[in-house]
Write a protein that binds this DNA or RNA. Structure first.
Length: 868
RNA sequence: GCACGCUUAGCUCAGUUGGCUAGAGCGCCUCGCCUACACCGAGGAUGUCGGGGGUUCAAGUCCCUCAGCGUGCACCA
């Protein structure tokens, strides 16, 4: 039979077939499962413009572990897959592609053709990515898969806009927004990144009208001075007290602007006097509104100086900056230039510098009278309607919602759903019509010349509604069955983008939170802790790793030693280690089924089948492991569950039980333990466990839908566990001595012991042979066993004395510590009984050990005296 | 500036409700017989759990504080 099972498990030979088996079984679809208990995890839809990366792989692994665990518990499990059209990002990707491949821009294609091409591109990528997602083994129901632009999903999202508009939560207005000159669109606050960069602080002299005096302002962006409409100082600032209300002549533009007082000015920064450019700075805009200042746009949407900028018209911002500084220097108006660290705003998608501009955009009022998205979200979090993993993310989320500003939802890109607003040619934009379908005529003038607003939605507006739109809110059966969903798993980096939007929009539309448990994964970093990126070339390709080491190994390496929300490092050696573990599991199977013709995986075992001490021990340990693993999974602690299982499988089952099984075969016990091991491992390593389970079972069975083991408390036997541990300790001591005297494993040592138990096991694992005659030599002792090893001639008495002395000192130390503890009345009064008993038991153990060690120590002296 | 996190073996990280002589992997050293496995086995070395203080019978774990590092948010014109 040995020949039939190969030495190693070749993952890439079996994985696709196993996935197909699962898929064809139909059990990815919850409709096939009859259960009242439902479990749903909506998978975060990846952007349909690229390929599977490690971030996806890590999230999918977590989701699939929980999903498979719940499915094995007999629940109706739905892992809901989808893809996101990813507005700006897809457009950036596709624009780059057509530029590289065809040398054209989106304007060459025109809006309609561009949209059609990018749609086809996304569908194509979706198909490609789906195949990749299957490789990782995710047990998602592909028959339900959705795309954010699918009509039924999209209409749900658009209805939200219509409803919000009715509820007075939508407004259109000229406000200062973040503008990306490259993407040519407005962005919301979260889509802007801030990067600390070296910059300069320019001190510029502004001459006072009818005076030889100057007021000096400090700025990092001198070019915006062309649009200045005031100079502001803090009202408390004594230095400028007399200047407030005076007029300044704006250099280069020769415009008269006032000096105003505003408490938002920091007295400590720069000179304390600030130039105010309402059209190009968010704070200045606010100040401008409050002081009714003029807004002069001197920078346009291409980041060039406008006509209003005078002779610098047409220059790029950076160019204009240099020229203006030169002009000012020539005029003697530059006081000084300092090095200064500035916080540069860049586009999250294309990294271009953001220009704050005043622009007409659509906004969501997040704190509207009729319904406050902000307050309702805060309330839901405060009321613990969502359980966060890790817990402290609750605080981060709360903090985020507390600082929430109105949300700019319109984008000037072509890719994505258009805002459902129509303008009548006659009645003008003020009298807009909100309607998902194109209205037949204008309700006001009955005119039929209607055009739709050209703007598209922020991509997070639609994906933020994903949990209920895919489930078919409000009437869909899935919505009724699965909402609110049980579980959501996402990368910590999209908390402010996606998570926040899902919470607030779901509460608004459905009145309920979208998910009950929210689990954050950290970022996957490289071996040196660096972020993985294409440009750095330090990325690990999940598909390449799957091909090389198998999906199970990759899955394991992604979750091992991780903590929710914290970053983790991944590198090939780590994956290799788990490939090795997969091989280990395979060889456990290989040995087991080669050693016996009649071995069968059995679900249950009766006490009378558990015969030897080793049997009792491994069965007890197996049941204890079921208990602990299940508990860890319930606590969403995957990494610890995995640790517990590795320990049991490798260090206990493989290293000890299988060795003993070679001496005293008990196939019932082995079949029982293997059955548990395969089932417990299945959520983590679905492929290899399914393969083994299928090969090992004579009946046609699928592990994926087998029942998750339940711990049989009757089979947990702490006494046998303890006894077996003592046996292990004896064997380790023998091995220890062998190793320290370099006795080759091939050499069998003679040994002697009174009251010998488990003789065969000690002989085999310790490589000794027991003889009847009493021997002279080094002695080792356990709880109720003393073994004499016949190696007197090898013993270095002085060395052994040192070892014993060390051990004796250690024990005396422990006893002393325990003595004080047990003498402490407070300890006896307040500690739980279990702990006290435990300490008492330990005390006895230490004392016995100490007595024995001392005895052995004096025997050693005899050995020395005899001069052997 | 505000908030959050991290600091445990040479490296990377676990450590459950505060309670067993602090663990794992990698790396390192020694040795490798026995057909499950060299993708392996046996043994070993390395820790004032970042510093200080506190709560408690008991602290790696809870609280305060300091330091270093990281992240998010806000923002300084």
């Amino acid at each position: 039979m040995t020949q039939e099972i190969p030495k190693t498990y070749e993952a890439n030979k079996y994985e696709d077939g196993i996935y197909k088996l699962w898929e064809e079984s139909g059990f990815f679809n919850p409709d096939r499962i009859k259960s009242k208990k439902k479990y749903c995890n909506i998978l975060p839809p990846p952007n349909a413009n690229g390929e599977l990366h490690l971030g996806h792989a890590s999230g999918y692994t977590v989701m699939d572990i929980f999903g498979r665990y719940h499915r094995m518990k007999g629940e109706k499990v739905l892992l809901y897959p989808g893809k996101d059209h990813a507005g700006i990002q897809s457009q950036v990707v596709y624009e780059r592609k057509i530029k590289e491949e065809r040398g054209i821009s989106r304007y060459d294609l025109g809006r309609e053709k561009f949209y059609k091409e990018i749609y086809d591109f996304c569908i194509d990528r979706s198909n490609y990515m789906r195949a990749q997602e299957k490789k990782i083994g995710i047990s998602a129901d592909w028959s339900r898969e959705k795309f954010t632009l699918d009509p039924e999903v999209l209409s749900g999202a658009l209805e939200t806009f219509v409803k919000m508009e009715k509820d007075g939560m939508i407004y259109r207005g000229e406000r200062i927004i973040n503008w990306c000159p490259r993407c040519a669109t407005a962005l919301s606050d979260v889509e802007v990144l801030h990067k600390k960069t070296a910059g300069k602080l320019y001190y510029i002299k502004y001459p006072l009208k009818d005076s030889k005096q100057f007021i000096i302002v400090a700025t990092t962006r001198p070019e915006t001075m062309l649009g200045d409409t005031a100079v502001a100082v803090n009202p408390k600032d004594k230095r400028f007290e007399k200047l407030v209300g005076k007029i300044v002549i704006l250099p280069l533009q020769n415009r008269e602007i006032p000096i105003i007082a505003d408490r938002r000015m920091e007295m400590e920064f720069g000179t304390g006097a600030v130039k105010i450019t309402p059209a190009h700075d968010p704070l200045d805009w606010q100040i401008g509104k409050d002081h009714k200042l003029q807004e002069i746009q001197v920078i346009n949407e291409k980041a060039e100086i406008t006509k209003l900028g005078g002779r610098h018209v047409g220059q790029k911002v950076e160019e204009a900056r240099e020229n203006i500084v030169r002009d000012l220097t020539e005029l003697g108006l530059i006081e000084k230039i300092e090095e200064n660290e500035i916080n540069k705003s860049i586009c999250e998608r294309c990294k271009e510098t953001i220009e704050p501009l005043i622009s007409k955009q659509w906004f969501v009022d997040v704190d509207a009278k009729k319904y406050s998205l902000k307050k309702e979200s805060l309330k839901a979090i405060k009321n613990k309607q969502i359980k966060f993993f890790p817990n402290n993310f609750e605080k981060i989320m709360t903090q985020w919602f507390s600082g929430l500003h109105d949300w700019c939802i319109s984008r000037q890109i072509w890719w994505g759903p258009q805002i459902p607003v129509w303008y009548c040619e006659k009645c003008g934009e003020e009298n807009y019509i909100v309607s998902i379908e194109k209205p037949t005529n204008c309700p006001k003038c009955k005119g039929t010349k209607l055009t739709q607003d050209p703007d598209t939605f922020d991509t997070w507006f639609s994906s933020g509604q994903w949990p209920y739109t895919v489930l078919g809110y409000p009437k869909g059966q899935d919505y009724k069955d699965f909402y609110p969903t049980e579980m959501m798993v996402m990368g910590r980096d999209i908390l402010s983008f996606w998570c926040s939007k899902m919470i607030m929009l779901s509460l608004y539309r459905t009145g309920k939170v979208p998910f009950k448990n929210l689990f954050f994964t950290g970022l996957i970093r490289d071996k040196d802790g660096q972020k993985m990126s294409k440009s750095k070339g330090n990325g690990v390709d999940p598909l390449e790793m799957i091909e090389k080491y198998g999906a199970d190994a990759l899955r394991m390496s992604l979750i091992t030693d991780t903590t929710p929300g914290l970053d983790t490092r991944l590198y090939e050696e780590k994956i290799e280690k788990y490939r090795n573990f997969v091989t280990k599991l395979w060889n456990i199977y290989r040995y087991s089924f080669s050693s016996s013709e009649n071995l069968e995986l059995v679900e249950k075992i009766s006490k009378k089948d558990v015969r030897s001490l080793a049997d009792q021990w491994i069965v007890s340990r197996a049941n204890q492991t079921i208990l602990e693993t299940s508990k860890m999974l319930e606590n969403k602690n995957i990494a610890l569950a995995e640790n517990i299982l590795i320990k049991f499988t490798w260090d206990e089952l493989a290293a000890w039980y299988l060795e003993i099984h070679k001496l005293e075969k008990n196939d019932k016990v082995l079949g029982y333990v293997l059955d548990k091991v395969l089932k417990l491992w299945h959520p983590f390593m679905p492929f290899v466990t399914e393969k083994i389970y299928g090969d090992a079972n004579k009946k046609v069975k699928m592990l994926m839908v087998e029942k998750w083991p339940v711990s049989d408390k009757k089979l947990i036997d702490k006494k046998s566990e303890k006894e077996f541990r003592d046996l292990q300790e004896m064997i380790v001591k023998i091995r220890n001595i062998r190793s320290s005297y370099r006795i080759a494993p091939s050499e069998i040592i003679e040994a002697y012991a009174k009251k010998l138990k488990n003789q065969e096991i000690i002989e085999k694992l310790g490589r000794v042979k027991f003889v009847d005659a009493k021997k002279q030599g080094i002695e080792i002792s356990g709880k109720d066993l003393k073994i004499v090893l016949d190696i007197a001639e090898l013993i270095d008495v002085e060395k052994e004395k040192k070892n014993f002395a060390k051990e004796i000192a250690n024990l005396e130390n422990l006893i002393a510590k325990n003595n004080t503890l047990l003498a402490n009345k407070n300890f006896l009064a307040s500690a739980p009984k279990e702990i006290i008993d435990n300490n008492k038991a330990k005390m006895i153990e230490y004392k016995t050990k100490l007595k024995k060690q001392k005895e052995l120590f004096s025997n050693l002296n005899n050995l020395g005296k005899q001069g052997v």
